[in-house]
Amino acid sequence: MIRRTISRPVRAAAALGVVALVAAGCTSNTPEAADTTSSDSQRAGSSNDDPGDKVTIGFSGPAADHGWLGAINSAAQAEAKKFSDVEFKAAEGTNDASQQIAQVETFINDKVDAIVLLPTDGAALTEVATKAMNAGIIVVNVDREFSTPFAARTTILGDNYGMGVSAGTYACKLVKDKNLTNPVIAEIAGIDALPLTQDRSKGFADALKGCNQTVDNRVAAEFTVESGEKVASNLLQAAPKIDIIWNHDDDQGVGVMAAFDNAKRNEFAFIGGAGSANAMRWIKEGKMEATVLYPPTQAADGVRLARLLAQDKSMSDLVQVAVPRRIVLDAPVVTKDNVEEYLPLGFES
Rank of each mutant, 00 (worst) to 15 (best):
A23K: 12
A24I: 02
A24D: 10
A24V: 00
G25T: 03
T27H: 10
T27W: 05
N29M: 09
N29S: 15
N29C: 04
T30M: 02
P31A: 11
P31G: 03
A33W: 09
A33Y: 14
A34F: 05
D35R: 09
T36S: 08
T37M: 02
T37L: 07
T37S: 15
T37N: 11
S38A: 15
S38P: 03
S39Y: 09
D40L: 06
D40K: 00
D40P: 00
S41D: 11
Q42P: 00
R43Y: 08
A44C: 13
A44S: 15
G45D: 07
G45W: 00
S46L: 15
S46R: 15
S47F: 11
N48L: 13
N48M: 12
D49H: 05
D49V: 01
P51N: 09
P51A: 03
P51C: 00
P51Q: 04
G52H: 09
G52L: 04
K54E: 14
V55Y: 12
T56C: 00
T56F: 05
I57M: 04
I57N: 06
G58P: 04
G58F: 03
G61D: 07
P62D: 00
P62R: 11
D65K: 09
D65I: 11
H66W: 09
G67N: 05
W68S: 05
L69G: 01
G70F: 04
G70P: 00
I72A: 04
N73F: 05
N73C: 03
N73P: 02
S74L: 07
A76D: 01
A76L: 03
Q77L: 10
Q77M: 08
E79G: 07
A80Q: 01
A80E: 06
A80R: 06
K82L: 15
F83C: 09
